[in-house]
Design a protein around this nucleic acid. Structure first.
Lengths: 187, 187
DNA sequence: CTTAATATTAATACCAGGTACTAAATGTAA
DNA sequence: TTACATTTAGTACCTGGTATTAATATTAAG
């Protein structure tokens, strides 16, 4: 047998790593980085089963398209239906499969929590830090596809400290309730 | 002046709409849908300033890449450091700007909560419904860039009902604590 | 009806970032 | 030296475009 194959293995391992970390690299950029020809990179990808740049980008985009809009960067998780700044507000969240356990279709708590928290923040209308939460309760599991309506109400204010009650209903049934204690950070 | 231009305007409005709803459509698919030539679609995109398919996909992917890995679809929010199934577990979350308020860099509570909840679920190792949560407390605001280490421990079990304590620390400081009551749904 | 402007379609050359395949060059160990 | 692995090179082809020029409707107005 011939061919050290050590460099190759190391390069391929490192290549896999690099592409996982940054799927936006072209073969050309990769070939410059590893100081091998483009063809070598392509052979490596072939052997490793790594798809071409455009396919990688596409799957990143597809995998995240529906999900992201519901949580994460957005100010309000769900859709703001009604708001009376400093007093109360209402939001609606249409749950979908991406928020749920695959097998059971039961929506993960974090999404329900995020709807509640973001609505609580919205009614205060300021950057806030969450200091305390108490009396949270998930009363019923929610299945994906169901529409959740959240009501938030500021029940007390002490200086820059707000006490907000949030109730989330599925049709007429309450599925979540929680009390948030928020501290406004406005300078 | 000549040219009705009504159809054009309507088509362009509708086109904009369609692409916003589904950025993954090629000019060819669009031309079939609107029953005009590909050239007309390209003229429309030009006039409306809508970039080509690949650019659209790319911006979807870029805009969401960093964010998604931290929350949403993933099983564990953060990185699983250690786990003793049925007993306890540890995870680490590197916070970044996408998780925080822009102005203040203070990490939104939902991300911290999601780390805690997903770790609690992980130690149980089953699809679960979140039934009750009590005694949650955010003890200190967290700034983006900081690493959070979560410890979860099952403290009690009654049938398919699990009581899990989660504590999240930033260096030596506790920033979050919460008790989760989870119900396993394994058939 | 004719004219002028708008709207649409066609045709062609070119581009990025590839795939797929064939062939040649360069190790490298035995 | 030989046998095999590895790396490069070269070529034809693909998708989904851009950019440009030109031809062909379509339509309102004079």
């Amino acid at each position: 047998m011939a061919g050290k194959g050590k460099e190759k293995k190391e390069r391929q391992k490192s290549l896999m790593d690099k592409i996982v970390k940054d799927p936006f690299l072209t073969d050309e950029e990769l070939s410059e980085h590893f100081e091998v020809s483009i063809q070598t990179i392509r052979l490596d990808r072939l052997e490793l089963g790594i798809p071409e740049l455009r396919e990688r980008i596409k799957s990143v985009a597809e995998g995240t398209y529906a999900k992201v809009r519901s949580i994460s960067g957005k100010e309000i998780v769900g859709e703001l239906l009604d708001i009376d700044l400093g007093k109360k507000g209402m939001s609606m969240l249409e749950t979908d499969n991406s928020m749920a356990f695959e097998k059971t279709n039961i929506v993960r708590g974090q999404f329900i929590y995020a709807q509640a928290e973001s609505l609580a923040i919205a009614v205060i209308d300021a950057d806030v830090a969450l200091i305390g939460v108490a009396n949270i309760k998930y009363k019923q599991p929610v299945r994906s596809g169901q529409k959740l309506v959240a009501h938030a109400e500021i029940i007390k204010r002490r200086g820059n400290k707000f006490f907000v009650w949030v109730r989330i209903k599925l049709k007429m049934q309450e599925v979540f309730r929680g009390k948030f204690i928020l501290v406004a950070l406005d300078e």
